[in-house]
Design a protein around this nucleic acid. Sequence first.
DNA 1: CCAATTTTTCCCCAATGCGGATTAATTCAA
DNA 2: TTGAATTAATCCGCATTGGGGAAAAATTGG
Lengths: 402, 402
Amino acid sequence: MKTADPELMRAINRFNVLDTIRRHGPISRVEISERSELSTTTVSAITGALLDDGLILTRHEGDLRNAAARGRPRVMLELNPDAARVVGAKIAAHSMVFVVTNFCGEVLSQLILPIRVNRQSIAVIADLIEDGVRRCVVDAGLSLGDVDSICIGLPGVVEHRTGIVRSSPIFRETDVDFASEMTSRLNVPTILESDAHAIALAHHWFGKARDLDDMVLVSLEQTLGLGVLHHGQLFRGAGGLSHNLGDLVLGIGPKDIVRLSALAGESAILGDRPDGGGRLAEAMRLGRGMALAQTLIAAEDNTLIAAATSAGEAVGLAVANIVTLFGPPRVIIVGSSLSLGAVFLDSLREAYRRAIPSSIQTVAELVFDESADETWAQGAAVVALCELYESPWGTTGPAPAL
Amino acid sequence: MKTADPELMRAINRFNVLDTIRRHGPISRVEISERSELSTTTVSAITGALLDDGLILTRHEGDLRNAAARGRPRVMLELNPDAARVVGAKIAAHSMVFVVTNFCGEVLSQLILPIRVNRQSIAVIADLIEDGVRRCVVDAGLSLGDVDSICIGLPGVVEHRTGIVRSSPIFRETDVDFASEMTSRLNVPTILESDAHAIALAHHWFGKARDLDDMVLVSLEQTLGLGVLHHGQLFRGAGGLSHNLGDLVLGIGPKDIVRLSALAGESAILGDRPDGGGRLAEAMRLGRGMALAQTLIAAEDNTLIAAATSAGEAVGLAVANIVTLFGPPRVIIVGSSLSLGAVFLDSLREAYRRAIPSSIQTVAELVFDESADETWAQGAAVVALCELYESPWGTTGPAPAL
DNA sequence: CCAATTTTTCCCCAATGCGGATTAATTCAA
DNA sequence: TTGAATTAATCCGCATTGGGGAAAAATTGG
């Protein structure tokens, strides 16, 4: 258990104030005090320190109170966008996306590399990522020295705490200490996170969960991932494991176990087609599988429609089970499989409707979101920013260890 | 978000010290200091306050160091068993169990009432519980005034935070504010908890999870429940909901959804028998169903063996899915269904073995436990004690509000 | 009986958050 | 233009916390 010294107290309140400023745009000290339930004195002290550290800025306008406001006008505070820069990356089987963001999480530059990293050696993948990071940083008009932190989002089972990739569809090996590898290559603190966790946090900051501190996100990419937000924080299982949704068992067939990934994984939907496999296989290899599938479904490709339908059904059941376990007010479903379109979605919704127990029917709402590629990378950047927000920084406090 | 004042800091450290003393028996101040990473000065101050408050006792013996220990001997500290008394209750369909425990959670008296409360009105159930609590307290040689807190463990979906029973197989109504009802009846602070959460905490304090701060417990009673311990605390979903495992979907049949409760619920295993239903139905009504089932299985009742087998299979799959999601180091499985014996257990283990993904095959170990009835009630008592431990109490601090 | 050793406490310090008084910056009315 | 009213932000002093180092306490070994 963590010992509670004044330093911790400080860190907690400091983080709360900073987070309040981030969430509620330009905001006055009084309002921070109301929202955070800290006294105005304390807020003043903390914002003073944050100003000294250059993490926030004052702005003498934008007071939105009743125009007939008497008295001393409020000074609005907002994040200093230039207080830090981070790099976020999303590595998928057929593409890599990089973004550089400022302290607010706003994208300064982005780089999409449609490169197949699938099953390359670790060294090659690390090379490609290193290159992508460096290029994206240069595109933003910066150098690596200006970057405070890097976060790489990966599919699979990623141990955030230790920076080890337990297993990932894009790695041949397991238990790879990839965070250390990238940190020493780039000479910038680099952390890892599951791609599902990254996009979940992106939705909490910018997307469809801005208003919620509890929610669940299901990502349907090559790998099926899960992100659980609990009291505003990512719920990382014991030891910081991410969740690997594809391994969920949906039923037990006559001969073997039926897993979710076997019904709803990208390769399950698109692969193993008796006819016309050539084009689709080729598209899949290039990461364009879902786009082509959309076209084929529009052309009433019955094999594919059947696959999409059963995939939707499987995901609907899995989501219902997750809602049963976690009872979140909202479930956000993202990922490339959404582009399969109505066939998939209707099937998913219908299966969910049937599977969700009536007692919690109204608890959760389903939300679908087809995020752009860079949103995923932005999510990774947010993971990095979160750590910066919590770090001690600054002028005050005993050890400004940086 | 909670504001971090000195009071909170105090509360955290105080709780840590108290919890360390509870867990590690008679223990010296130095050792507390080592374990909690607080300075000896702070430990001394806190233990001083705890001694003043009468929550702990000194003992001038039992120093287990090297006998040839020089210097001032350590003074051992331990919980004061008489610092408080709580009542824990477990309400099931066919029986109620009450215990009175001391501050250590040791049972002072217990009362088992084999009464069917199933589907009685709320008022009648409340009457029965009130009576049970009063009797059990008297049995312990106490009066209600000596009781500091009461916790009632119930099957179903229980909102601990608000004290509302969302749905329970023993209640006809839903959304019952049962905590208020019992508090006003007994005039002692009364809280609720799901029975699965209660037994999970009991295992953390006294049972098979003493050594772990992360684990999952699956309870197989009339209702199928889940308790998740995360960093030493019960993981309560958003809003403090308990989990209702029985609603999990295991597959989708040709005509309808197949839920876990339909395969592994008590009534699913024992009910709907074409032959010999009379005796079993009668036994079930009296809550002796599982005991009789054990006998029948030993006598090679094939219908029942089949039911137990498929129930085990279903639970095995569900447990595998839960391990996939939470990745706990240990899963404890408890509940009356365990008494079905090897048929059930072997089937469960085999299904689990088949269903658990190979990547996390070694993460979790399965442990089975047939706890006595009073252990469940003791778990409820522990829930009550946990709240007492966290409450401010005492001589120090600004407001000794009691 | 004294030295050595170990535990526990005492004294003082730095840091924190808070309450009340004070200062700052503005609007409104005369 | 000036002063009163009003609201925001800060300053000062207080209580509380935990921590470090010195001192006291309680033993054992010679």
